[in-house]
């Protein structure tokens, strides 16, 4: 297993004024009670009786480059502090946990977001990849002091359960802000908030090659809604019908420009492989 650290210096937190942030304060809680952190006492007083405004957790986001993990990251930024992104790159195209077509571009997305990326490679064999996930989370804890992990799981108990177990082993909090989300409301919020998402993989009827590279805008969402109703696929693609790639998000300092891409498609299975991409000013 290789662990690559993409460290991009983060200076301009002020570039994200749209994200409300709590004030980090020190609460001197004895070690035996540390497990309960960061729970403020109910009356807004710290254990020492001083007035507190809240505590903020340092979180790492399990990051695939698709809309769900990036939206979950955005949600997490509104409540806690996202200190790094964590990507597990699977060499196994059949991996249920980690494989996505353009996972290598997670580094570019991390750069766009001005966040460090902890990248781990895995052979992608079923339970072995969980050990690689564990090593990735350990590296994120050692390097960036994460106290918890955020995922973009919506419906997949298979994925959510495995991440929960690894987090428990490592005494890390686990957050799934999209868990059981109303798919319609989620997709609307995604577009309203300014995320620019393109379809990077199709794996189900009736999606043809023309869907590859399409941006999920209102018109596309209307079509997806109709397809979801007619073909009983999930609107979000969480059932594995679609893969997505995010080119812009509200917290990106720069957006991604896809400069060259190729399509492979056969029998309702297709992938948009992004061959070349760069960052451009927003």
């Amino acid at each position: 297993m290789k662990i690559r650290q993409h460290i991009i210096l983060i200076l301009p937190w002020r570039r994200r004024p749209q994200i409300p942030r709590l004030t980090r304060t020190v609460c001197r809680i004895p070690p035996f009670a540390a497990r309960a952190l960061p729970v403020p006492p109910p009356q807004g007083l710290s254990c020492t009786g001083e007035k507190i405004t809240g505590t903020i957790m340092k979180l790492g986001v399990l990051f695939s480059g698709g809309k769900d993990s990036i939206f979950a990251c955005w949600k997490a930024m509104q409540q806690e502090e996202v200190v790094c992104l964590i990507t597990v790159v699977s060499k196994n195209p059949e991996s249920y946990m980690f494989h996505t077509p353009n996972i290598r571009l997670a580094a570019l997305q991390a750069e766009a977001a001005e966040l460090p990326l902890v990248e781990v490679e895995t052979a992608g064999e079923k339970e072995e990849e969980l050990l690689d996930l564990k090593r990735a989370l350990l590296a994120a804890r050692e390097q960036y002091g994460i106290e918890g992990v955020v995922t973009g799981a919506i419906l997949s108990i298979y994925q959510a359960t495995r991440v929960q177990r690894v987090c428990r082993e490592l005494d890390l909090w686990c957050f799934n802000p999209l868990w059981n989300a109303d798919q319609e409301a989620y997709m609307e919020e995604l577009i309203d908030a300014g995320f620019k998402v393109v379809i990077a993989g199709v794996f189900s009827c009736p999606f043809d090659a023309s869907w590859l590279g399409r941006e999920i805008d209102r018109r596309t969402l209307d079509e997806l809604r109709e397809i979801a109703r007619k073909y009983r696929v999930t609107l979000t693609g969480e059932g594995g019908e679609l893969e997505t790639f995010v080119v812009d998000a509200p917290f990106f300092a720069q957006r991604i420009a896809i400069e060259e891409a190729s399509k492979t498609y056969r029998n309702y299975n297709g992938v948009l492989r992004i061959e070349r991409a760069g960052l451009v000013a927003k």
């Binding site: 960061p38 729970v39 409540q79 806690e80 957050f175 802000p177 059981n180 109303d182």
Partner: peptide
């Protein structure tokens, strides 16, 4: 752990829906 926490959407939101 906190009012309007990051866990709210995971544990309260689905019941509200």
């Amino acid at each position: 752990y906190r009012e309007d926490s990051l866990s709210r959407d995971e544990f309260v939101g689905p019941v509200e829906r």
